[in-house]
Amino acid sequence: MTTAIIVNEVYKKFGKSELPFWRRIFGHTNGNGSNGNGHNGHNGNGAKAAEKSKVVVAVDKVSFTVGTGEIFGVLGPNGGGKSTLIRLISTLLLPDQGSISVFGYDVVRQSMAVQQIINRVSVEASFFKKLSPMENLLYGARLYGQDGAETRKKVVDILTRLGLEKRAIYNPMEEMSRGMQQKVAIARALLTKPHLLLLDEPTTGLDPRSKREVQAVVREMREKSGTTILLTTHDMVEADQLCDRIAIMNSGKVIALDTPAELKKLIPPKDGQETTLEDVFIELTGKKLVNEEEETV
């Protein structure tokens, strides 16, 4: 299997120290922070320095590779750094340290080449709300150099396959449910036939039936087109069923990475019950899953 993504020692922090620059220069803090998840990054030189710092480390020296055609899952609590990682891969953020390459292209130096072969579906289905799915998808497809007439046909095909009524394709997005909007977001990504599809909690907030439909599309993309998929999710069952390998992130770090079966072996069964991914997650992160709609970091 060839390599689709190489993430090498990637570090990303947000915010800036509120200390005056001379105090930062003369070493009153170590300037690199400890970790994220809402915690102040500065440590080591007293509580005062930490209090005056608003640095949040979102991704902390993360490294992994993803093979071509693999479905790679990233699990983590809210604020664990999953969405930041996806934004770094999708050229929407620049890493402070480390490097990321997608099919051999560096995301910083060759961002245009990377953008041509990727697409992303985020937890917020971001659209021009007054425009219809057809108008939104035409806009999205044209940005990727696609022909209008061909796109119109494809839009109808894809959206009806995803369960949208034909009538809904021409009505404003604001009249659609969140689940429907999310399906349109998935269609937007499918239209451009990406080599790498980044799915940032694509099924959060969907009803069980819509969830299954989306999961079926993900599988089909991999099987029919060989698309590599990087998926973040809060749904442990979904991760278990869909992903070939899973990385568990906490406070910006990858704390475990393996196949779902191997991850489950990390925790011995309790009370005769088979270990689930959720058991592994809680054991490793010390946190329960929070099913919030959005991640803040």
Partner: peptide, 14 residues
């Protein structure tokens, strides 16, 4: 306003 900025700036458009 619409929340689409990331999609537009992520597209391979000069």
């Amino acid at each position: 306003w619409e929340g689409t900025i990331e999609y537009t700036l992520m597209a391979p458009v000069r």
